[in-house]
Amino acid sequence: MAKLEIVIFEDNRHLRESLEMVINSDPELACVATFSNGSDAIEKIKKHDPDIVLMDIEMPRVDGIDATRLIKKHFPEIQILIQTVFYDDDHIFKAICAGAAGYILKTTTPSGYIEALKDIGKGGSPMTPGIARRIVDLFRNSVPQKETAASPMLSFREKEVLHELVNGKSYKIIAADLNLSIDTVKSHIKNIYAKLQVNSNTEAVAKALRENL
Rank of each mutant, 00 (worst) to 15 (best):
R61L: 11
E158I: 06
Y103K: 07
E115Q: 13
I189D: 05
R210F: 11
S125C: 14
L178W: 11
G38Y: 03
Q79E: 14
Q83W: 11
E28S: 14
D88H: 05
A194E: 11
D183C: 10
R133W: 06
V32P: 04
E203H: 14
F156I: 10
S181Y: 06
I135M: 13
L70W: 01
A41Y: 05
N201S: 11
D26V: 08
N201F: 12
H14I: 13
H48W: 15
H74C: 04
P126V: 03
L162Y: 08
M153G: 02
E20N: 13
L70F: 02
V205F: 10
N191V: 06
S187L: 15
G99K: 07
V62M: 12
D177F: 09
I52H: 07
P110A: 08
A116R: 01
T34M: 12
F139P: 00
G168R: 01
I192E: 05
A41N: 12
K47R: 13
I23F: 03
R133S: 14
V143S: 07
R140H: 08
M127W: 02
L165V: 05
I71N: 00
P152T: 07
D183K: 15
E58W: 06
P50N: 10
K186T: 10
I82A: 12
I174N: 01
I114S: 00
A116V: 02
F86V: 04
I92N: 07
R69K: 15
N24E: 08
G168T: 03
S151T: 12
A149Y: 12
S200D: 09
A149G: 09
N212D: 09
E58A: 13
I23K: 03
I80V: 14
L15V: 13
Q83Y: 13
D63E: 09
D56E: 13
H163G: 10
S36C: 02
I174K: 04
E28P: 00
L54C: 09
I23N: 00
Y87Q: 15
A100E: 01
A116I: 05
D49Q: 15
V161H: 00
L81H: 06
A41D: 14
V62S: 02
I80L: 05
S18V: 07
S170R: 04
R134D: 02
P126K: 01
I52N: 08
M21H: 12
